[in-house]
Design a protein around this nucleic acid. Structure first.
Lengths: 140, 140
DNA sequence: CCTTGACTTAAAGTTAACTCTAAGTAGTAA
DNA sequence: TTACTACTTAGAGTTAACTTTAAGTCAAGG
């Protein structure tokens, strides 16, 4: 039961190097088997996945380390855990607003340049038409 | 007319160092006055602000450099500019989805730990009540 | 027996985007 | 005159989060 480092690495999509690095930093510390081989439990896997989700929204290693320590400390860490989570939630909310605002900006820019392309295309068609008229003779 | 580096720095919230760095990278290149002092035009300011907005959503210096060069090349760069913008827009859209997904996750976690706190508080109140009973005599 | 996958430590390298330092010069405003 | 703001080059330093390298050892499966 449990996963070896290579398995988990493939399952969750991070390198073995990174898993060892996370272990060194205290984020995901698996048990070892009799040969000292890392044995990642289901909990280890879930925890690693949670960490990756938090990283997707830019939570720092620092916060993740603190959070993990608090979790390990048991109930007495709960308030501080909630604190980290709510702080991060606020950041994520703000980020979403910023991203949305700039998505609008991008859409406007894209529209603008696409319209300018179309105007040019019309202009070019017109010019082509004019040119054709001028060189029409050759096409007869 | 125009802004000196210190003014613009304050107006748009980036350091003078950074403005000089952006100039070196070809992103925002102001004219100079007779004493070789940078004179940022209104256009320079708008361009800088646009760059900062794009950076807010993680556009790389690389893309911003290319984009700026294309803009400077005039109409012939328009198609490639649209390409950069639409690529980036897709990235931004994906990021928003990821952020939203993880905002949900954060909310669930926070709810979970808050409930666990409340359960504990109830439990503690009960224990307190029991304790009181035991030590009630002293209060008479 | 050989290959595969795992293990170790310690340290160096990578990347992006700044950020700062040094060491000096120069114009402008009070 | 003093203070302020700006200028220059060139290169070193910073930060986060990996990522890689070296140089080896070890155990199981086919």
């Amino acid at each position: 039961m449990g996963y070896r480092i290579g398995e988990l690495s493939k399952l969750i999509g991070v390198s073995e190097h990174t898993l060892r690095y996370y272990e060194k930093e205290g984020l995901v510390v698996p048990d070892r088997d009799k040969n000292n081989v890392r044995n990642y439990s289901e909990h280890n896997k879930l925890w690693a996945e949670f960490i990756l989700h938090m990283k997707e929204t830019g939570m720092s290693m620092e916060d993740l380390k603190n959070y993990t320590k608090l979790w390990e400390s048991g109930e007495e860490g709960t308030v501080a855990m909630i604190d980290i989570l709510t702080n991060h939630r606020d950041k994520v909310k703000k980020q979403i607003e910023i991203y949305k605002k700039n998505l609008d900006l991008l859409n406007k820019k894209i529209d603008f340049y696409q319209s300018s392309l179309e105007e040019n295309r019309s202009a070019n068609l017109y010019e082509t038409f004019v040119d054709r008229k001028g060189t029409d003779e050759e096409l007869k």
